[in-house]
């Protein structure tokens, strides 16, 4: 039987009296790639940000392997539940310094071989000593992915990681992510507004509408529904 990597129980978030995520409950099994789709402003990113406690749910619980995330120290939780954002947000310096950033926070200094191995996984072998301001958008997003993987997370949250890239680059990064998730057996929640992308990469799809979970199921079942407005 597949184990549950991450689950939410009736989570809700209110900001200034507005409910932006309403009573959402779902679970993600180990090694699954769950795409979260829905129109702009429907609460996809807000939902994702509650899973590693970048934002706090107003009510409800998030469970990581059965443990309430509120019982885990935020630093430790965010190491275990990594996040790749819409933009790369690399820190000034070299690619290697960015890759080492996460492990350094808990006193581990990755050696050159480990850095090179992570870069090879994102198809950037030989980029370690490059300055981050010399990277293209696609390369920067790959470094951001490798930087997250350097923490060896149990779950990876991806908030529209390809939306700031042009179509060709977006497809390349998307294929890379899907390949890595399969190869490493990662559990991944992938926010996207792109139905075609969700269909290509997801093992399951969660549809959000106006802050609520509208449907969850197999990609063909959710994405082919006639009234879907994404």
């Amino acid at each position: 039987m597949l184990s549950i990597a991450l689950a939410t129980e009736h989570i809700q978030r209110e900001v200034n009296g507005n409910t932006i995520v309403r009573d959402v409950s779902f679970d993600v099994t180990q090694g699954e790639l769950l795409a979260i789709v829905g129109p702009s402003g429907c609460g996809k990113s807000s939902l994702l940000r509650m899973l590693n406690r970048l934002d706090e749910p107003t009510s409800g619980r998030v469970l990581l392997k059965g443990e309430d995330t509120c019982a885990i120290a935020p630093c430790e939780l965010r190491r275990r539940v990594g996040m790749v954002m819409q933009r790369a947000y690399l820190f000034p310096g070299t690619v290697a310094a960015n890759i080492r950033y996460g492990p350094l926070q808990r006193g581990t200094n990755l050696d050159d071989a480990a850095v090179e191995q992570l870069l090879a996984q994102v198809e950037l072998a030989g980029f370690a000593s490059r300055a981050v301001d010399k990277l293209s958008g696609g390369e920067a997003q790959r470094v951001s992915l490798a930087r997250t993987l350097a923490n060896d997370p149990e779950v990876v949250l991806m908030d529209e990681p390809t939306s700031a890239l042009d179509e060709t680059l977006a497809r390349q990064v998307e294929e890379l992510i899907a390949g890595l998730v399969r190869a490493r057996g990662l559990t991944c929640l992938f926010v996207t507004h792109n139905r075609a992308q969700a269909r290509r990469i997801a093992s399951r799809v969660l549809l959000m509408e106006r802050g609520s979970l509208a449907a969850i199921g197999a990609p063909q079942e959710i994405l082919n529904a006639p009234l879907l407005d994404t």
């Binding site: 590693n52 970048l54 430790e76 965010r78 990594g82 950033y101 996460g102 926070q105 951001s144 930087r147």
Partner: peptide, 16 residues
């Protein structure tokens, strides 16, 4: 704020 939240997401302490 994007860089700061990226660093938080990598397990860094707020002061860092």
């Amino acid at each position: 704020s994007g860089e700061i939240e990226s660093a938080l997401s990598l397990g860094a302490a707020p002061a860092v």
